[in-house]
Design a binder for these strands. Structure first.
Lengths: 335, 335
DNA sequence: CCCCCGAAAGTTACCGGTAACACCGGAAGA
DNA sequence: TCTTCCGGTGTTACCGGTAACTTTCGGGGG
């Protein structure tokens, strides 16, 4: 007599119904070729007659395998991550892994908490946004002996697999595009200012200084970025530096918001003010004019992560490495 | 000697280190007040010395509780769901539940697959987008005897908890706003055309017919919506019905894309063409002019779901009900 | 006729926790 | 002094599967 009347159908119920032992039912599900065809059919029909749903916890506990992988992303509302995630899910899904998604809210403390949570779920790998983690998180990761992917930006000292692009270089390249178009008074507008945003800004500053120009025209805020914020911050910048010729925005949302504000002010883009964003989201191709942006290879990042992670999961040894997938500058019509 | 050298630290290791049995360590973690203070401290220090990470599968199996809830959303890239999800996560997170997110890609077949997956993970509740499910999904849900939330739209026959708004009514109300402004030749532009999009369109049609007008000016596509698509479809509509006075777009993305296309064509919004979207995303307040839209109470939906679901999880009986959280029409400057 | 082999199914033990109940010693009450 | 009670800890069994090994049985080769 069961202690708790769970009411749930277990392997044993199926086995009783068919007149075999539960291990045979278990085999029929996981390794059908080891079970005779006739029996397999009877088992299958018993399974959907009784409505058996496997107990993942029991399976994971017994086998030591969870068939799942954790994917942490900074924010669910940021379209940047959805393509990366799609590539990962397709690649890993085909190999039988379930992808568990968590979001860190751009906080490495929250990341640490999630790493802990997902390790207790027994995930077989972790995919992390960024290359900076708390000390405790690093200790957890090392001790867990689980493949780890760090993505989005690059690092000299990857924990394991690192796939991304050089954010600093990309920031520099876009700034250079402004310079190539003859602009000199080029500002930077940034929000949230997470580590990657800082790298992009540093790239802007490096290019500006290298050209012997002043990097003073810079406005940032720790607030989350949004279209509205882009407009508001553009207004502040124009008030403070009326001589601005171009503004490099830390991401596409800000750039679009800035563009809308220019439209309200009847400020011609790019003639009176050039604008650029970062990421190459859909919106940059739709606005009037289309926005200049740094197109990041997000889908490719996702695919690459899936491929390299599968190799590790299938036994490839730990061999820390970085893969730089580059970027592309798109001039659009705003530069 | 262990069969597999998992290398992982278990409760038993902690217990051995401290010199107690594992049940005491288990108690110290789950019901600290039942363990003496001195012992608790020794246990805690052993835990972080050895780096113990609980095994969620084992706990879930033994206790029959997973402390987790599945949240299915149609798409990760649609900003509409992120606020709903935030409300849910805050509410349920505080109560100790982990929210597992899955996305259906707007397919009820994929939804069915995910329901199966998450039931096998032992989730204690399911939150589903929409009120339409496959027959098999309904059978799974009924048999699982687990609280279910259906959200976004309303239904007369909820499975359990239903929280949302009347999409048909909302479509009708926005169309009425066009009529109130004196527009007569009002079109509808829709993409993806999932069930909710169809309801909104039906609302548009109802209002149009009720006003004795023609509902012919309607263009839809099964493709996923995007800014770019909004522009392209606007162009098609203008070509086909040059007399259009206003267009109600099935969501904000399409409306924004349509607005950008108007800007390219130097078509004044709203004087030459009125536009409206649906959802009240951030972008509608940022464009020039701001877009008219139906503001949906997404955060409130999330909070309400969390509240009502917690009540059920804490023992409130199954009592199917619908809660209509309404909507608000915002005129913006495009209508 | 015996042996060996392999396919098909069964036995046993175990994964790492938790529920339920048993136990123990000391303080409070009778 | 004897119960009673209770805080603090231990014992035992079990959750629902899977790994590893064993058993059974029929057929082919020697």
């Amino acid at each position: 007599m069961p202690r708790r009347s769970s009411g749930r159908v277990t392997l044993q119920h199926i086995a009783d119904r068919v007149g075999v032992t539960k291990i045979t039912v278990s085999r029929a599900l996981r390794e059908p070729h080891l079970v005779s065809a006739a029996l397999r059919l009877r088992i299958e029909s018993a399974i959907d007659e009784l409505g058996y749903i496997p107990n993942h916890s029991a399976g994971a506990l017994a086998s030591g395998r969870s068939h799942s992988v954790a994917l942490l992303i900074p924010s669910l509302s940021n379209a940047v991550f959805s393509e990366i995630q799609r590539g990962i899910e397709e690649g890993l899904g085909q190999a039988g892994y379930q992808v568990l998604i968590g979001h860190t809210g751009y906080s490495i403390l929250e990341e640490e908490r999630l790493i802990d949570t997902y390790l207790s779920y027994g995930v077989e790998a972790l995919i992390l946004p960024g290359t900076r983690h708390t000390d405790h998180a690093c200790r957890l990761l090392t001790r867990a002996r689980v493949p780890v992917v760090e993505t989005l930006e690059l690092t000299e000292t990857p924990l394991d697999i690192n796939v991304g692009l050089d954010q600093h270089e990309a920031g520099k390249a876009m700034t250079q595009a402004f310079l190539d178009r003859g602009h000199r008074k080029i500002g930077f507008l940034g929000a949230r200012m997470d580590y990657r945003a800082q790298l992009r800004m540093a790239g802007w500053e490096a290019a500006i200084r290298q050209a012997g120009l002043s990097a003073e025209r810079c406005l940032t805020t720790p607030h989350p970025s949004s279209y509205r914020l882009g407009g508001e911050m553009l207004a502040s910048m124009l008030e403070r530096w009326p001589d601005l010729e171009g503004i490099f925005c830390g991401n596409d949302d800000l750039a679009a918001g800035a563009l809308f504000e220019c439209q309200r002010r009847r400020l011609n883009v790019p003639d009176q003010l050039a604008l650029a964003g970062f990421n190459g989201l859909d919106i940059t191709e739709a606005t009037a004019p289309p926005l200049a942006t740094v197109v990041t290879p997000r889908r490719c990042i996702g695919d690459t992560i899936a491929r390299r992670l599968l190799a590790r999961l299938q036994g490839a040894p730990l061999q820390p490495s970085s893969e730089n997938l580059g970027f592309r500058i798109r001039r659009g019509g705003s530069l």
